[in-house]
Design a protein around this nucleic acid. Structure first.
Length: 492
RNA sequence: CGGGAUGUAGCGCAGUUGGCUAGCGCACUACGUUCGGGACGUAGGGGUCGUGCGUUCGAGUCGCAUCAUCCCGACCA
């Protein structure tokens, strides 16, 4: 009873917030706008990190770490970039505290003012490019493919757990290349790494596409994003990959000598995903019973709940579960036996469902007698009793099936909420129902802004690899000619 | 920084027009009965009612101030 969550249809925001807190993923910190990620939530994040790290390594990317503090002067070198972030930066101005001469507590020591303020990184392009300058002399030094796992700070006005917090965890890749084409290819390649990860591991269907110039990352020539659909029909940008051209190379004077001995500015890409993916996981896959975790990302894939009355029953049930556990672990599955005393089975069932554990096994005296075990799958909530022989193989197959099924369910939801819209009246009506609107757009920023003002909808992306978008038509707002459809939606 | 709301136990709340000993649910502690879908009984522990000032014989309740938080905007991965 204590852990019951609000239903999705009743109040989507509250459902989300309840779920994040009650499934033990995270909680609001006493520090304004910041979040505490709890062990269970962090375990999921660690699994994401592992998959991403492996994928990065396959692409030749290495991990590195750059400073948290960025001198203000670095930051102001790239005009567009600073304009994009200036409004939300935390700034360090002093380096010492002292006891308060006028009362209790401590105060900032006014004599310890920094000559140059330090910015707490909102993203690391500037500090990294100031470093790359020293690393890059010749074409032989290129490409440089670095990733860092870090925290960044963006002083947001309004925050929501995982989706928008003042501090968040992420990875940011920063690459340097000899040619424009190579840098562009890198940005595209990494966008596909993200899309594959979202689809295959997280079971979240995403649309890969280009951002409109208006929605681009500050300082980028092209921004690719993966856009996911939440179950209230709103879009969530789940990852971005940017082609930065020579903007940062020029700002930080990063040149290399090519094979002919001519000095050339290098070309750049950067790309990142954050703990926002945790929010996407909750909002794209969760249901009224709680989280639904795809087996590949679940910290616990199989939980076993013992059912017993007497000590003898307890020990025989536990012995049987121990055997199953060993076999499952030998097959590479993560397993937990929930042997907490004093909690009744029904309570445990509900709690593990809330936490999204894919498979639950219940073993009781009845099963010991019959040689059976009860299997419950989280995605469909189906319960079956099966012979204990062969149960390990069956669970392996079940986990594989669930990994596919969860994706298909989310895909079906998303695709049933994508509509083609050709008139402005239809646009205004359909946007109220949520979902992605496939529309023609005249390509102007003016139209984009008008549409946003009137409907709060923005261009989420201009999809790549989408045959349905490739057609001639007229802009849904201005009526001017257009060569392809783009996705409009309200977003987080 | 605009518009709206809320601060009472760890959490969620009630407390009518001021009234004496501040209450309920969950959680917590102890004991017992339970245990195949969120158990129950009994007995306990836990509060300067956000803070300050005022009105009053008397303030959780009324007034003013202040702080904090949340929601809706502006901003954003």
């Amino acid at each position: 009873m204590a852990k019951e969550i609000t239903s999705r249809s009743e109040n989507y925001s509250q459902w989300y917030n309840d779920l994040v807190v009650k499934a033990d993923l995270a909680e609001q910190s006493a520090v304004r706008g910041c979040m505490v990620i709890k062990p269970y939530g962090y375990a999921i994040w660690e699994k994401m990190q592992r998959f991403l790290d492996d994928a990065f390594k396959k692409e030749g990317v290495q991990n590195a770490y750059f400073p948290l503090f960025i001198p203000k002067s670095f930051f102001s070198r790239e005009a567009e970039h600073v304009a994009g972030f200036a409004k939300e930066c935390a700034v360090v101005t002093h380096h010492r505290l002292m006891t308060n001469p006028d009362g209790p507590g401590v105060v900032v020591d006014p004599s310890a003012k920094l000559e140059e303020e330090l910015i707490v990184r909102p993203t690391s392009e500037t500090i990294i490019w100031s470093t790359y300058k020293n690393w890059i002399k010749s074409w032989r030094d290129l490409p440089i493919l670095c990733n860092q796992w870090a925290n960044v700070v963006r002083w947001e006005m309004r925050t929501r757990l995982f989706l928008r917090t003042s501090e968040f965890l992420w990875q940011e890749g920063h690459t340097a290349h000899a040619t424009s084409q190579e840098a562009q290819n890198e940005a595209i390649k990494m966008a596909h790494v993200y899309a594959d990860f979202a689809r295959n591991i997280l079971d979240i269907p995403v649309v890969l596409g280009h951002k409109s110039p208006h929605e681009r990352f500050a300082g980028a020539l092209d921004t690719l994003s993966i856009e996911a659909m939440m179950q209230d029909g709103k879009a969530l940008q789940a990852g971005t990959s940017h082609f930065l051209g020579q903007n940062f190379a020029k700002s930080f004077d990063v040149k290399y000598a090519d094979k002919e001995g001519n000095l050339q500015y290098v070309w750049a890409s950067s790309w990142g995903v954050s703990t926002r993916l945790m929010g996407a996981l909750v909002m794209a896959l969760g249901d009224d019973n709680g989280l639904v975790l795809p087996p590949l990302i679940a910290p616990i894939q199989v939980v076993m709940v013992p059912i017993y009355k007497t000590d003898e029953e307890h020990s025989s049930v536990l012995e049987k579960m121990g055997q199953i556990q060993d076999a499952l672990v030998a097959n590479g599955h993560s397993v937990k036996i929930d042997d907490r005393d004093l909690l009744r089975p029904g309570f445990k069932f509900a709690e593990w469902e809330l936490k999204g554990v894919p498979v639950r096994l219940a073993v009781g005296p009845r099963d010991i007698t019959n040689g059976t075990v009860e299997i419950h799958r989280r995605d469909t909530m189906e319960k079956t009793t099966v012979p204990i022989d062969g149960v390990v193989d069956r669970i392996g197959e079940l986990l594989d099936d669930m990994q596919k099924n969860i994706y298909l369910k989310a895909l079906q939801f998303r695709d049933s909420h994508i509509v083609k819209v050709d008139t402005w009246d239809d646009f205004k009506e359909k946007i109220e129902q949520g979902g992605f609107l496939l529309c023609h757009w005249d390509g102007t920023e003016e139209t984009e802004e008008r549409i946003q003002e009137e409907t709060k909808a923005t261009i989420r992306c201009i999809p790549v690899d989408s045959a349905v978008c490739e057609e001639e038509g007229k802009c849904v707002y201005s009526g001017k000619p257009s060569h392809r459809r783009v996705i409009f939606a309200r977003s987080y």
